[in-house]
Design a binder for these strands. Structure first.
Lengths: 210, 210
DNA sequence: AATGCGTTAGATAGATCAATCTATTATATT
DNA sequence: AATATAATAGATTGATCTATCTAACGCATT
C-alpha cells in the first residue's frame, strides 16, 4: 500500500527522491559503522549532503522512521545480492561459501567498518522500538527467503530449506560480528567452510530432477 | 599488571568494590538490551544504585573505560559458562547444542532483550574506539578458547578445534541477533542443530583414547 | 504573471549527553 | 584521637542530540 504510493510519488517527482534516497543510504551506511544509537541525524544529513529541513520533510516521524526505511532499503538490496550469489555456482554450498568470502573482502577493504546495518540496529534498538524491530526482522526475513529460494531451486524440501537458511543467515551475521571485533577475516573463512559443508551434506539428499 | 593492582586494591577495600562491580554489571546488562551508544551513564548509575560521583572515581577515563571493564567482566563470566557446558555431556556436539537451547530460554525469558553485550558493543563502537574493540575481541577470544578447550578434551587436533570453535561462536552470536529481531527462538534452535551436527561429524575423527 | 506545492534552508528549543568540579562523609592507618 | 585517603554526593558545564518552527526558494500548472 505504502509502496504503491511511494512508487507513484517517485515517478512524478525527480530531485526530491534523490535527497530522500541519499538520506536513507547515508543512514544505512552510518548504521553499519557505528550503529543506530551511535549515529546522529546531523551526521546523516552531512553524509547525504542533504539539508536538515529535508530530513523531517521526508521522515516526519524522525529517526525511527528513517531507521525503518534504511532497514527496508538494506533488506531489499542485499536480498538481491543473495539471489545473485546462487548463480555463481551450481553447488549451493559453494555459492554460500562464496558469500562468506566476499563479505570477508568487503570487511578487509573497509578496515572492518562496513558491517551489517540490520544487526547493529537490532542490537541497539529492537528491544525499545517495536516498529524498528519489525523492520529489522523483515530485512532478515527477506534474506532468509532469498537463501531458501536458492535451496529450493536445487530441490530442497521446504522445511529443510527454511531451517538451513536460518542457520546460514545466523552464521553469516555472527561471523561478521566476530570478524569485526578481531579485525580479521578468520571467523568468516572458518564459518563459511563449515556452513558450506553443512549445506553440501544436506544437498546430497535433495532431488535435483524435480 | 593492572589486574595485580586491582586484586590488591580489592582485598583492602570492601564496600567500594561493590559499587565498582555494580557499575560494571549494570553497564553490562544495559549494553545487552540497548547497546553501548544507546546506554547513558546516568542510566547506568541509576541501575547500579550508585552515586554519580563514584562513576568517574572508579572509571576516570569515562564511558570507554567502563565499557572495557564491562567487556572484561562479560568475557570472564561467560567463558566460565562455556567451560561448564562441556560438562553437561560427553558428546561435545550435544553440549554445544545445549548452549544454543539454553540461550533460547534466556531470550524467551527476557522478552528477547537479554542479548550479548559484546556483540552490541562491537557493532556500536569497535570501529571508533580501538581500546573497546580490543576488549571485545578479548572477550570473544576467551569464549573461543573455552570452546577449544572443550574440544581438546575430546582429543580434537588443535587447528581443527580452533576453526570449529570460531564457527560455533560465530553461529551463536548471529543466531542471538536474528532471534532477537524475530522475537523467536527458531534461529537458535535451527542453528544449534546444524552446529551440533557439524561438531559431531568432526568429533568422529578425533582420538578419544589420548 | 500569478498561484500553489514540494523542497530547501537553517535558526532555535528543550532535553539529554559525557564529563568536571567542589564539598562532604566514611574508613583505615598511625 | 588525629590524619590521610577512599568514596560518596550532586550541582554544573558545555556539547550534542532530536525535533520543531518559520521563511524562502524552485518549479510546475494555470
Amino acid at each position: 500500500m505504502e509502496n504503491d504510493c511511494e512508487s507513484l510519488y517517485r515517478s512524478r517527482m525527480g530531485k526530491s527522491v534523490d535527497t530522500r534516497l541519499r538520506l536513507i543510504r547515508a543512514a544505512e551506511q552510518l548504521f553499519r559503522v557505528q550503529g543506530f544509537s551511535g549515529t546522529g541525524l546531523k551526521q546523516v544529513t552531512a553524509e547525504a549532503k542533504a539539508p536538515w529541513g529535508s530530513l523531517y520533510h521526508f521522515f516526519p516521524a524522525g529517526k525511527a522512521e528513517l531507521g525503518v526505511e534504511a532497514a527496508r532499503w538494506a533488506g531489499a538490496y542485499y536480498a538481491e545480492g543473495w539471489r545473485r550469489s546462487f548463480g555463481w555456482s551450481d553447488v549451493p554450498g559453494e555459492a554460500v561459501e562464496q558469500v562468506f568470502l566476499m563479505e570477508a573482502k568487503i570487511l578487509e577493504g573497509s578496515d572492518y567498518r562496513n558491517g551489517c546495518p540490520i544487526a547493529s540496529t537490532t542490537l541497539d534498538i529492537a528491544s525499545l522500538d517495536e516498529n524498528l524491530r519489525l523492520a529489522c526482522n523483515e530485512a532478515f526475513d527477506l534474506w532468509r527467503a532469498a537463501i531458501v529460494a536458492g535451496f529450493d531451486a536445487h530441490g530442497a524440501p521446504g522445511e529443510e530449506a527454511e531451517a538451513l537458511a536460518a542457520f546460514v543467515l545466523s552464521a553469516m551475521e555472527g561471523a561478521i560480528t566476530v570478524a569485526r571485533a578481531a579485525k580479521s577475516p578468520e571467523a568468516l573463512v572458518h564459518t563459511g567452510r563449515y556452513v558450506r559443508e553443512a549445506v553440501d551434506r544436506a544437498a546430497q539428499t535433495w532431488d535435483e530432477s524435480r
